[in-house]
Design a protein around this nucleic acid. Sequence first.
DNA 1: CTCTGCTTTCAAAACGTTTTGAACGCAAGG
DNA 2: CCTTGCGTTCAAAACGTTTTGAAAGCAGAG
Lengths: 178, 178
Amino acid sequence: MHKTLAAVNDSTVAGLGRLARFFGFSDVMGRLYGTLLLNPEPLSLDDLADGLKISKGSVSMNMRDLERWGMAKEVWMRGERKKYYTAESDLWQVIRNVLGSREQREVQVALHVLGDSVEKLKAAEAELTPEERELARYYLDRVVDLQAFFKVAQMALETVVGSGESLDFDAVTRIEIE
Amino acid sequence: MHKTLAAVNDSTVAGLGRLARFFGFSDVMGRLYGTLLLNPEPLSLDDLADGLKISKGSVSMNMRDLERWGMAKEVWMRGERKKYYTAESDLWQVIRNVLGSREQREVQVALHVLGDSVEKLKAAEAELTPEERELARYYLDRVVDLQAFFKVAQMALETVVGSGESLDFDAVTRIEIE
DNA sequence: CTCTGCTTTCAAAACGTTTTGAACGCAAGG
DNA sequence: CCTTGCGTTCAAAACGTTTTGAAAGCAGAG
C-alpha cells in the first residue's frame, strides 16, 4: 500500500485508540474500530488480529464489546464460515449510544446520591448540636453546588443524546454558537 | 461526629473520587479535594493523610497536582510550620481550568493531525494507482467525519471555558447541528 | 457421527499504575 | 552550630488491568 495511505491509516487508528481511552474504553477497542472504519470491506477476526498484531482472543473479546456498544456490526458473507465485521460509520450514532447508556446513568446516580444527602441533612437537623448544625449547613451548600454541576451535565447530555436521528456531517462543519 | 454528617461526607468524598477518575485524574486527588471541600477550615498534610488513611508521601504528591490544576490552594496559618490547604470551592472555575488546559489541547492536536491527513491525501493523489485513489477518497470521507466531530467538541469546550462566572446553560444547549 | 476450521473462554503471565515508607532535604528555633 | 519537625522524593512492593495462547466449544460439510 502507498506510504501516504499507510501513514493516514496509522495515525487515525492510533487517534481512535486515544479517543476510546478518553471515553473509558480500552485502547484496543478504539483501534479495532478505527481499522474497521478505514476498510471499505468487512474484516474477519483474523484480518483484525493480523492487522493490529494482537491475539485472536483479544480481538474476539473486544469485538463483542464493540458490538454491545453499537460501534460495529456483524456482516454475513455468503459462502464464508468466518465472522465479518464493519464499523458503524455514523459517528453521532456511536456517541449517542455511549453517552445515552453509560454517561447518563452515571449522572443519574450522582444526582440521586446528592439528593439523598440533602434529605438526610435536613432530616437530621433537629437532633444535631449547634456546632454540628453549622457544619450541616456548610455541607448543604457544597452539596447543592455539586447538584448544580450535575444538573448542567444532565442537560448537556440530554441535548446531545436527544439530537436528531441522522446527522449530516458536512453540515456539522458549519456549526454555530449563538 | 454525627453519623449523618459522616455518611454525607463519605459519599461525597467517594463520589468526587469517581468524578476525578472520570476526568482522568487519580481517585486520591478527587478524595483529597472532597475532603478539603467539606472542611470549613484548612487542613494539613497530616490531617489529610489521617482522614483518608493514605500515606503522607501520597498526600504530598497529589496535593501538588491539585494545586497545579487550580483545585486547591495553600493557606498560610500564622505561627504554624505546617502547610495548610483549602479547596478551590468555585466548581466552575475548576472545570474551566481542567477543560481549558487539558481537553482543549487534546482536541487541538487531534484536529491538527486530521488536517495533516487531509493534506497528505490530497497531495498524494497524483502518484496513486486508480485503486489506491479510490481508497484515498474513502479515507478522506472518514477523516472529514472525524474532523466534524472534533470541531463540535472544540466549540463545546470553548463555550464552557469561555463562559463567565456561572455557565450560561442556554449556551450549552444551543450548540446545534444544522 | 466425525472431521475441520473457526470462535470463545479463561487462567496465567506480562505489563502498567499506584501506594508505601524509609531516607533525604530543608528551614526555624534553641 | 545542632536539633527538631516538617515536606518531598523515589525505589520497591502491592495492586489492578490487559494480553496471551492453549484448550474447549461449536457449527457446517461430508
